[in-house]
């Protein structure tokens, strides 16, 4: 790949570390997203909730639809292999993977900030990871 002549001198190592992880994970997540969605809509795997049921209720508020259908929610599909290995759950998991990408990138980058003597940004990165992880636990919405 062609690189700009001034690329390397201007970009900090921690930023290159972030970009490296982001690149790999984003490609993987998009492939997973496509594959799992194909498995979902073409019914290559069983579904927890049928698409017809979803379509019949997608005009309702999320809370009302949830009451009626019990579709995958938060980490609910991780309760066992049977509930995980379903088309809708895998497709939902692909969305979770995308949301976790910044967490992984920041976890890789935080030590690099400390190594490069930029501890303030190391702390900011760790705080950011904590915020994202707290959001991912769902405690804020219970």
């Amino acid at each position: 790949m062609k690189q700009e002549p001034a690329d390397k001198p201007h970009v900090h190592k921690e930023q290159l570390a972030y970009a490296g992880v982001l690149d790999k994970l984003s490609h993987f997540a998009i492939l997973f997203l496509t594959g799992s969605y194909a498995a979902y809509i073409f019914q290559l795997l069983p579904r927890k909730v049928s698409i017809a049921d979803i379509a019949a209720n997608w005009h309702l508020r999320a809370s009302l639809m949830q009451e009626k259908l019990d579709a995958p929610l938060g980490w609910s599909f991780m309760s066992g292999m049977e509930s995980f290995w379903r088309g809708d759950a895998l497709s939902y998991f692909a969305i979770i993977l995308i949301c976790m990408i910044p967490v992984v990138c920041l976890l890789v980058t935080a030590p690099a900030f400390f190594r490069e003597k930029r501890p303030v940004f190391g702390v900011i990165a760790i705080l950011q990871v904590l915020i994202l992880l707290v959001a991912a636990t769902g405690v804020l919405v219970r």
Binding site: S36, Y37, W58, G74
Partner: peptide, 14 residues
């Protein structure tokens, strides 16, 4: 923010 939507059932892969 997406986590809030996921935990409230407002994220439909479809």
């Amino acid at each position: 923010a997406a986590w809030v939507y996921m935990f409230k059932g407002a994220m439909l892969p479809l």
